[in-house]
Simulated assay, not measured.
Amino acid sequence: MTTTPFTLSRNSYGRLSLTSADGTVHDNVAPARAFPVQAPQDGIAIVSSDGKEVAWIDRLEDLPAATAALVREELGGREFMPEIARIVAVSSYATPCTWSVATDRGDAEFVLRGEEDIRRIGLDTLLVSDTHGIHFLIRDTQRLDKHSKKILDRFL
């Protein structure tokens, strides 16, 4: 079993509390990923309610199972980044336009303001932002179907 220099638990209000090895308790802490797209399981800071880092996790898999589960649960509740599996249709090739997509969280429609809202964050990885600030991830453009690639190429 892996040991960590801290323990995590939920307080009576359902919020995370961190107890450091020296016994210091930090209430209302939250995990924050350093590299949410490129390395989602690595480099996670535990931050206090005022934004100060109180603990660092190099790799989520190195934590005890119960602690890792708490961190994953908290991150899941805070993060929302659907992954686009297929671009079904677009209302127009001129922006703004409405995209209809199939994601890992179900079908969705969103408005793309402009081509600048499609950002390359890796060789084949894109982040698409809608008008409400929701980010949609295309993890690997090479794995998209032919129809999706054709639509996407019109915007890149």
Rank of each mutant, 00 (worst) to 15 (best):
P40W: 00
A94F: 03
S148V: 04
P96D: 03
D107Y: 10
I151T: 11
T7D: 12
R72N: 14
R59V: 12
D107R: 12
T67N: 04
T4Q: 14
D153Y: 02
G133D: 05
A94N: 14
S91A: 07
A21L: 05
V71I: 14
S9D: 15
D153I: 01
F80A: 09
G133A: 04
T98I: 14
T67S: 10
A94T: 15
G122F: 03
F155V: 00
D42E: 11
D58I: 07
R86W: 08
L126S: 01
R78H: 05
L144A: 02
L127T: 04
G106W: 04
D50F: 05
A32P: 00
A108V: 12
L63D: 08
T3R: 12
L126T: 01
R105W: 06
V111H: 05
T103C: 04
F110K: 02
Y93A: 13
R15I: 01
R113I: 00
E79G: 04
V88F: 03
V37H: 04
L8S: 03
D42N: 14
R15F: 02
H135D: 15
T125N: 01
Y13L: 15
I44M: 10
V90D: 08
I134M: 12
F6H: 07
A108S: 13
L156I: 07
E109W: 00
R72S: 12
M1W: 08
L16C: 02
E73C: 07
A55Y: 09
T7H: 08
I138Q: 00
H135Y: 08
S48D: 15
T141H: 01
D62A: 10
T131I: 10
A102Q: 14
D107M: 14
R154Y: 04
D124W: 05
E115V: 09
A65H: 12
K52T: 13
A45Q: 13
I121L: 06
V101P: 07
M1Q: 12
V90L: 13
A21G: 06
A89G: 11
D153K: 09
I134A: 09
R120E: 10
T98V: 15
E73I: 03
L126A: 02
A69D: 14
R119L: 00
R154Q: 13
A94D: 15
I134G: 08
A66F: 06
I138N: 02
A108Y: 04
D104G: 06
A102S: 13
I87M: 10
S92G: 07
G43I: 05
G76W: 06
G14C: 01
L75G: 09
N28P: 06
H135A: 09
T141S: 00
A34T: 12
T3P: 08
T19V: 14
F80N: 15
V111L: 11
R33H: 04
D104A: 07
V47M: 06
A85H: 06
G51S: 08
V25S: 09
R78D: 14
A94G: 05
I46N: 06
L63R: 11
G122Q: 13
R33T: 04
S148A: 05
S20F: 03
N28G: 07
A45G: 10
T131P: 00
I134E: 12
I46F: 03
R10W: 03
Q38T: 15
